[in-house]
């Protein structure tokens, strides 16, 4: 059992995986650990900065925006805030994958935003970033609405995403961002 987990992670180039509740402290710890790992691996400074930036936005995006799954057990109703965080290192890219529950009613808005971001080239992303930065108010969660755009800008690649229908209330949203290990 353990061996098959190990082999499976190795085949998929996984260097870090977490499944559980996402707290601010946890995000800090992961960032610190990954920063040490990038330093230890002697990764190129530019690559390291981009990977770090993308990790910050992806992890904080989950922290701020995940919808807790309401379930009940013998002790009553529980708010399940678990999510999946995964970081990998392939020959050509680093990847950051997050997965979390999202209310079905929010799926379309998030999907549209991601589709819009993926249609933009470098210049269009810059314009969109400036537009939202200067015109939109901060959300009540204290977020700027810039996360996906920033991830796409730093990544330089299209974002991968999927919405998996869970039940009439929730879907499971996964997001994948890559950063090339060769930066100009």
């Amino acid at each position: 059992m353990t061996y098959s987990y190990f082999k499976n992670m190795q085949v998929n180039n996984v260097i870090f995986v977490y499944q559980g509740e996402v707290t601010a402290d946890l995000v800090s710890s992961i960032l610190q650990m990954m920063e040490n790992k990038l330093d230890g691996d002697g990764e190129d400074k530019k690559v390291k900065k981009k990977v770090f930036n993308v990790m910050v936005e992806c992890l904080q995006n989950v922290y701020h925006h995940l919808d807790a799954l309401e379930t009940s057990n013998v002790s009553g109703k529980i708010n399940d805030k678990r999510a999946l965080l995964m970081i990998g290192k392939e020959d050509t890219d680093y990847y950051v994958i997050t997965g979390n529950y999202i209310l079905n009613e929010r799926v379309n808005a998030v999907k549209e935003k991601l589709e819009r971001v993926n249609k933009c080239d470098k210049e269009e992303l810059k314009k969109l970033y400036q537009e939202i930065l200067s015109n939109e108010e901060m959300s009540d969660k204290g977020t700027a609405g810039l996360g996906m755009i920033d991830i796409a800008r730093k990544s330089g690649q299209k974002l991968g995403f999927d919405f998996h229908y869970v039940n009439e209330m929730y879907s499971f949203f996964s997001l994948e961002a890559k950063v090339s290990r060769v930066q100009p």
């Binding site: 770090f52 930036n53 904080q60 901060m138 977020t143 700027a144 996360g147 920033d150």
Partner: peptide, 11 residues
């Protein structure tokens, strides 16, 4: 480094 919520505060 700065995150996107800081970017709004910097503005």
């Amino acid at each position: 480094y700065f995150n996107t919520s800081s970017s709004k505060c910097l503005l």
